[in-house]
Design a protein around this nucleic acid. Structure first.
Lengths: 217, 217
DNA sequence: ATACACTTGTGAATGATTTCACAAGCTCGG
DNA sequence: CCGAGCTTGTGAAATCATTCACAAGTGTAT
């Protein structure tokens, strides 16, 4: 048994580490398709844009998964990483906001593939409620509390206009949601036991704008 | 004159700093709408989920913008931040990939509002080429090099399927693109003079999954 | 059975970022 | 004009993250 994920003590794991673990997992999955059986920290690093020491350090927080002289078994490390990232189960996800982004997300296959099951999409617009997009039915936002009381979703994806984002978040949190993926370009105010991740395209573009503006000084 | 953006020496500015500057700018714009004239680092911090010392340190890399005892002038700091972030001009953006995400992005008003002008959308699918979505016409990807030779876009947004992302990036880079906003869930391999920002929804969900799985140990 | 080439796991060192803490500057009221 | 009350700007300290460097395993070839 090489795998021993989570037997380690609980130092707080940095966000950057978790992101890299995701990246390693993706690359491992690609490698498995190509029939690779074993992979070194160096190969993993090159592909992920980091260093081999970083890869080994990241993994060392959770256990020891490799064989000296040889590297890591692709299927074993894949399985360990899934386990570490909590992907060993299905997560229920609701999407709030059936605009362009909400609907694009609802139909994105990548979610289901990784165990994120979209159980419902909500909107307040009567013109949208009841419409079907692929396999997804848009439900009335006024029902969201009642629905959540029955089956609490693990994660809520917020894809509403910026002006409605805080209100929507407050409702979801009051109803018991503990994790939000926020697409609205605003910093949500949430209690400490609620986790938020932001996806903010304007901010990313501004980051590029900054880099381009400051390239050469 | 309080504003003195960019007169400072050029320590490398951390990515995290730039993201926070974006957040401050957004909040300043909201405050201006509410008629606020002056704001303290503490108010800025509370709203942005950071500390007042962090706000002041972030700004101090670029100059000194406040008045002791009073805080920052909202319009002056807004203008300074715009300047720092390189938002004093229009940036030309092309979108590559006219799938759901590409089209949602193309129609997102937030881009134009902040000076990111979408000049073209490209796809390889003959069924999509020539179609019009709002004001945006989908063009033939095979023309992209010729178009770029005429007017180099400042930023390319990559919204193609993961299997095509690296090839598309290579083409764009060969044609002279120096900044890419990548929505494909893959780590692009690019030369050192090309800047890439990644937006990866699966990775964000996995980050939440990790947090939810490790909450209580 | 041994030597060799390779790769991990991890303390220690370095580097980067955040927080602390406080002098200095500004405004306002009297 | 002076003192009280705020708030900035910034070195120094503390914390956090990455890189270095190497002992300790592992597989392979002879």
């Amino acid at each position: 048994m090489i795998s021993q994920a989570r037997s380690h003590s609980v130092k707080r794991i940095a966000d950057s580490t978790v992101r890299r673990l995701s990246a390693y997992l993706r690359f491992l999955e690609e490698s498995a398709v190509d029939g690779v059986e074993t992979i070194s920290s160096d190969a993993l690093a090159r592909r992920g844009g980091t260093t081999s020491a970083q890869v080994r350090k990241d993994l060392s927080f959770f256990g020891s998964f490799g064989k000296r002289g040889l590297g890591y078994s692709v299927p074993e490390l894949t399985s360990s990483l899934r386990d570490i990232l909590g992907l060993g189960r299905e997560w229920n996800v609701i999407i709030v906001g059936a605009g362009k982004i909400g609907m694009a997300l609802g139909q994105y296959e990548g979610f289901e593939q990784r165990g994120f099951h979209v159980t419902a999409v909500y909107d307040t617009d009567p013109g949208k409620i009841g419409t079907q997009w692929g396999s997804i039915l848009v439900r009335d936002m006024s029902r969201v509390e009642a629905d959540i009381a029955e089956v609490t979703p693990d994660i809520a994806v917020l894809a509403v206009p910026v002006g409605e984002a805080q209100d929507a978040a407050d409702r979801l949190i009051r109803a018991g949601v503990k994790a939000i993926l926020n697409f609205a370009p605003t910093q949500l105010q949430v209690p400490g036991d609620v986790s938020v991740r932001n996806v903010n395209m304007a901010m990313e573009l501004e980051g590029l704008s900054f880099i381009l503006s400051n390239r050469d000084r």
